[in-house]
Design a protein around this nucleic acid. Structure first.
Length: 293
DNA sequence: CCGCGGGCCTGAGAGC
DNA sequence: TGCTCTCAGGCCCGCG
């Protein structure tokens, strides 16, 4: 469940439990997710205190009291859940509220408060790493990340510049984390619908000229943060995984205008179009051919 | 550098 | 019921 709004929802859920928390012990189920855990991962975390829980694009970053940062990515299927410690946690147990260990619980953070934070990830496309906080920006994963979609940098002028010379589709350009970092397949589709821009358009055609972005680019610069904010307010989108750390579902999937709505009527006022699914770069794109130009 | 295609994993759902 | 197939919210790598 991992685009920016879902990651932000997770961050907001974890923050009250994690910030200021002392990590007693970390348990791993196996040595790797998408990549191996760094050496001595569990040992290096034991005894540390979390000073802040931040987000960069789709990454969660827990700053620790020794100057290292725990970097976490949810991949396609990662989720966190918080288990508060009634009684004593059985040693060696990845506890589940019903006493069962989830089949894909890979990491358990045992906090001094008695709470446990469990990371579950069936497909194991997720990632955890430990890096010096002052070198985060230079790390391979972060070095090439573009701007935050909710930051001040996202202006029509900036977007227009980013699209300049890009021969790829606007859909692919918005998925490119080197430009705007944090959008994924769902929110790109939704933002394009909101801005009435066809996903098939060449990105360069939206660049405009001499710092004069096109009207479509101005609409996109509004639609992107607007969709993200609404999604965060709704607790993200839940398709098959839980978005929230307490196990409750996000609600934004009920507000989708195009994603997953193949064959359904376009909800734009006055539009009689029907939502269509196409494949771009091997991934589904949903859009309304009638009103997205 | 850019853009594309494939690969990495497991599970859910559809269709037979 | 059970099998096979397709698809899934992301990212990395290697190729031309």
């Amino acid at each position: 469940m991992p685009e920016l709004p879902e990651v932000e929802t997770v961050r907001l859920g974890l923050r009250p439990v994690m910030e200021g928390a002392h990590i007693d012990r970390v348990e791993l189920q196996r040595g790797d997710l998408r990549r191996p855990f760094p050496g001595d991962f569990a040992r290096r975390l034991a005894g540390r205190t979390v000073t802040a829980l931040r987000r960069r694009a789709k990454y969660l970053v827990a700053a620790l009291d020794d100057g290292t940062c725990l970097v976490m990515h949810l991949g396609m299927s990662g989720s966190f859940r918080i288990e508060t410690g009634e009684g004593t946690a059985a040693p060696g147990a990845f506890h589940h509220p019903k006493g069962r260990k989830g089949p894909h619980d890979h990491v358990a953070f045992h906090l001094r408060s008695g709470a446990r934070i469990i990371y579950n990830d069936p497909r194991r496309f997720g990632l955890m790493d430990l890096l010096p906080c002052d070198e985060l920006g230079e790390s391979p994963a972060f070095r090439s990340l573009g701007i935050e979609p909710l930051g001040r940098e996202l202006t029509p002028g900036w977007l227009g510049g980013a699209f300049r010379g890009r021969r790829t589709s606007i859909k692919a350009a918005l998925l490119d984390q080197r430009l705007v970092a944090g959008l994924g397949n769902i929110y790109v589709c939704e933002a394009l619908w909101e801005a009435r821009v066809s996903p098939l358009r060449e990105a360069a055609s939206l660049a405009g000229r001499e710092g004069r972005p096109t009207a479509a680019t101005r609409r996109l610069a509004e639609a992107i943060p607007a969709v993200m904010k609404r999604a965060i307010a709704a607790g993200g989108s839940s398709l098959r995984n839980h978005a929230r750390t307490d196990g409750s579902l996000g609600d934004f999937q009920h507000q989708f205008k195009v994603y997953g709505r193949t064959g359904a009527p376009c909800e734009r006022r006055g539009c009689r179009g029907v939502i269509r699914r196409i494949v771009q770069g091997g991934r589904s794109t949903y859009y309304c051919p009638a009103c997205q130009k």
